[in-house]
Each structure stands twice: as structure tokens, then as C-alpha cells.
Nucleic acid binder design. Sequence first.
DNA 1: CGGTACGTAACAAACGTTTGGTATGTAAAA
DNA 2: TTTTACATACCAAACGTTTGTTACGTACCG
Lengths: 210, 210
Amino acid sequence: MPPPAPGDREARRKDVSEAVWQVLAARGFGGLTLRAVAAAMGVSTGMLTHYFPSKRALVTHALDLLEENTAQRSRRARPSAGLGGARAVLLDLLPLTPADAGRSRIWVSSWDLSLADDALSAQQADRYTRLRATLRPFFETARARGEIPAGDPEHLAAAAVAFAHGLVVQALFAPGRFPEEVQIAMLDDFLTGLTLPRPPAGGGGPSPGR
Amino acid sequence: MPPPAPGDREARRKDVSEAVWQVLAARGFGGLTLRAVAAAMGVSTGMLTHYFPSKRALVTHALDLLEENTAQRSRRARPSAGLGGARAVLLDLLPLTPADAGRSRIWVSSWDLSLADDALSAQQADRYTRLRATLRPFFETARARGEIPAGDPEHLAAAAVAFAHGLVVQALFAPGRFPEEVQIAMLDDFLTGLTLPRPPAGGGGPSPGR
DNA sequence: CGGTACGTAACAAACGTTTGGTATGTAAAA
DNA sequence: TTTTACATACCAAACGTTTGTTACGTACCG
């Protein structure tokens, strides 16, 4: 086999990153070792270090690529503006198929490492900020169209992201209890709750029965 | 210092578990080593193995104790039945104070290990089942009282848990953006959405603008 | 004495990283 | 065209460190 042409270097790094995803999906970050990645590719650990100077560089690049993948996927086939668009973005976050579950799994697993590392923690916070920023225009349009009552779009985006990611975690641990149609129904119920006309805000929570 | 009286063995194991929490909160599961725990206590690794036969036993006991702690705390001061009670349970899940944030942090970090281990994964799924079961009666009462419209209480519990835990993750990565009052306001907004009267369910999502 | 409660020290295994070497290519020099 | 030079791609092996675990020693107490 001829060695890859010079310029395929970035393609080879992508191959390595995919092997990293494979190991992460199977064993999590606690089981991510250079030897495991090398074995998954059928190569040596020296090959990995030839393309990445350190394990950390390898991990961050794999995560960057995974995010880029996800972003590209959600940019395709955005059906509409307004609330329907927000629904499409949120559907992309859910582990509806086994492939999506693998991606979600890796993100959830990465939180352990991210919470322990300031740089990764900031990166993850940025990801959330970007995600909310992606969602916000849809809610603004929805409000302009009268699909939802008045309310801060940024708050709505944060709430929607919270709901989606909390559902992701529950679904990952109990896929049998949260099949595709249940996840979608729950998301639609949540979005329906946003569309309803609200009474003027009173202090101290929603009729806190005390 | 005299050695602890015989019978304090369980108390000593609790001391060790608290040191485990300390290390987990600071460095996550990826940084949890016997030597780090021993150093946090100012003892030797031999002392740890005297009370726990293996690292796994040490970790599972620390997590068991942490869950027991959380359950006890949320059993205290449950203000009311109905929606207000559900609100109190959910507030206990949120990282409102730094101490709560530490606990939440450990749970989120544990998901990496749990997703890679079948036994721990089942344990985590059980925890979610118990949490939903804890929440369900409050929604049933709320429905009986007319605080919320008709709807499956189990679904409502799953949705509420999802929202709360998704908010936990976002708040852990950006505590500055989600201070106590913002978290509480978001939770109350979510609960308010549950109280609103719903139109009869139509197929295909909430006015999906297509 | 006998048992509990440790500390000390060592163990093999696994880790990330480094090194040395062997192909295989391209490109300029002869 | 042949030769020399040099870079790329990779493997195999070893490095020193850190890991969980085990064995052994000592001090205290009943």
C-alpha cells in the first residue's frame, strides 16, 4: 500500500479521530488510551504520536471534529424558521438513532474531563453559548409571528437546551424507556407549553400551594 | 491519637468516602486515584485498602453514601404536596449553592464511568426511576387539585427531571450565567408552562410552521 | 498473646512519551 | 538516467512514571 499523498495528512488525522470516537463510545474517557485507539485502527501508538504531539491534542481535535460534524449536520435540512426551526435544532440534539446515541454518549462522557480542566470547561461553556445563540433567532421569529407569547428569547433558548440535554442523559441510561417516539412526544409537549398564553407573572413561583 | 473504637469502622469508611468526594469535586473521576484520596486524608494508601478491598468498592460506596445523603436532605423540609412539593424536590437537584454544585458536579462526572460500566449504568437508571417515582405523586396531587391540566404524571416527572438536570449541566459550566435566582426563575417558568390549559393534541408537533 | 489499625515498601501492569530504525516517496545533482 | 539527499510514514521497542494491589512490619489495646 502506498503511503498517503502529502496533503492527506489532515485526512489521516480525521481517521485517527474517528478511532478515538469508537473507543470513547465503547469505553468512555476513563477507557481512552493511546493503545486502545491504536488497536482500534490496527496501528502502533507511534503512528498516533506521529500525527498528534500529545494525548491531549488528540482528544481536543477529536472533540472539535465531532462538534464540527454535529454543526454541519444540523445546518442541513433546517426545515423552517420560527418554532418549527427550533424544534428541528432540538431534535438534532436527541439520541433518536443508535448513531446519535453514540455522539450524545461521547458528549456526556466528556463532561467529566471538561469539568476538571479549565480550558475544556471554557470550551464547553462556549459550546452552550453557541447552541443558545443558534436557537435564539428561532424563538425571536416565533414571537414575532405570535407562535409564542412575549418572553426573553435567550431564556427560552436556555430552557429548551436544558430540557433537551436532560432528556439526552435519561435516554442514554434507559434507551428502552425513551424510544424515538417518546423523546419526540416529550419535546413536542415541552414546546407546546411555550406556546400557551401566560398570566402576568406573580412572585414566588407557580401557585406554590403554601 | 488513639485508634478509633471497634464499631467506628463504618464511621471511618464514611470519612474515607468524604475524602473521595473531595478529590472527585476537584479533579473528577479521571483524577481519582488511591494516592490522591490518601493525600487528601493525610494517610497512606494501605489505610484505604484496610477499609475497602478495591478501588471499585471505594467508589461505589462513596456514590451510595452520596445518594443517601441527597435523599435524606430532600426528605427534610418538604413544604407541601401538589405542584409546590414538586418544585421543592426539583430545587434540591439544582446547584444553587457551592456545596450543591459540588454534589452535582460529582454526579455529572460519574456519568462517564457509569456509561462505560453495565452495573453502574443500571444503578444510574434505577436512580432516575426512583427520582421520577418521587416526583410523580406530587404531579398526581397537583392534577387532582386542578393545578395542572390532565396529563400522564410519569411523563411530567420525566420532563421535569430532564429540565432540571439539563439546567444543572449548563449551570455547572457557566455558574456566572446561572446564579441561584436565574435557576429558580427558569424552574418556575417551566412549572408555569405545565399549569396552563392545553388545546387538544394535534398530530406532528406544536404548529410546526411547515 | 491475639487482633485491629495502620505505615512502609514493593509488586506487576498499564500508562504517555521517546527513540531508533526501515521502508517509501520526491527532488535536486551528477 | 542514475545517484544522492532528504522528508514523510510508520513500527517496534523501550523509557520513566503512575496506577491498583499485595506483603510485611510495627504499635497499640484488650
